Computed example of a mutant assay.
Amino acid sequence: MSRPLAPAGRLFAVAAFIEGFTWAGLLIGMFLKYGPVANELGVKIFGPLHGGAFLFYVVVTVLAALRLRWPWWATLLAVIAAVPPLVTVPLEMWFRRIGLLSERA
Rank of each mutant, 00 (worst) to 15 (best):
G52M: 07
A74E: 10
W94H: 08
I80C: 13
I45K: 05
I45H: 05
W72K: 13
F21C: 04
V43S: 04
R10V: 10
A78I: 10
K33E: 10
N39A: 10
L49T: 01
L27I: 13
L91A: 07
L49Y: 05
V43T: 08
E40W: 12
L63M: 14
L101Y: 14
G29L: 08
R3L: 14
L49H: 04
I98H: 03
L5N: 03
M1T: 04
R67K: 13
W70A: 07
R96T: 13
P84N: 12
M93F: 02
A38H: 15
P4D: 09
Y34N: 12
S102A: 15
L66K: 11
G20K: 03
L66Q: 12
I80D: 02
T22P: 01
M1V: 04
K33V: 12
V37L: 15
F95L: 15
F95A: 07
R104E: 13
L41E: 09
P71A: 12
I28D: 01
T61K: 01
L55S: 03
V87E: 06
L32H: 08
F12R: 01
A74M: 10
F12W: 06
G25Q: 04
L68T: 00
R97S: 13
A15R: 01
A24Q: 04
N39K: 04
A6D: 14
T88F: 02
S102V: 05
Y34T: 09
G51Q: 06
T22D: 01
V79H: 06
R3G: 03
G20T: 06
L26A: 05
P36D: 14
A16P: 00
P85N: 08
T61D: 00
R10F: 11
W23V: 03
L66D: 11
E19S: 02
V37A: 14
G35I: 08
F46W: 11
V79K: 01
A13M: 09
T88K: 09
Y34P: 05
I18M: 07
M93P: 00
A65I: 03
L86W: 11
A105H: 13
A64I: 03
R69G: 07
E19M: 06
V59H: 09
I98M: 06
V59G: 06
T61A: 12
L63E: 07
W94R: 03
M93H: 05
G25E: 04
A53R: 01
W94D: 01
V59Q: 08
I98W: 05
A65C: 05
G51K: 01
Y57D: 02
F12D: 00
L76I: 15
R96F: 07
L91Y: 03
F56H: 00
P7F: 12
E19H: 05
L55P: 00
L26S: 04
V62Y: 10
Y34G: 09
L86P: 05
R3I: 00
L77G: 11
K44A: 11
F12P: 00
G51S: 07
V62K: 03
G25T: 00
N39E: 14
N39R: 10
A105N: 13
L32Q: 14
I80Y: 12
A15M: 05
R10A: 13
W94E: 04
L100E: 04
F95V: 03
L77E: 10
A24L: 15
L49G: 02
L11Q: 10
F31S: 09
L55I: 11
W70E: 11
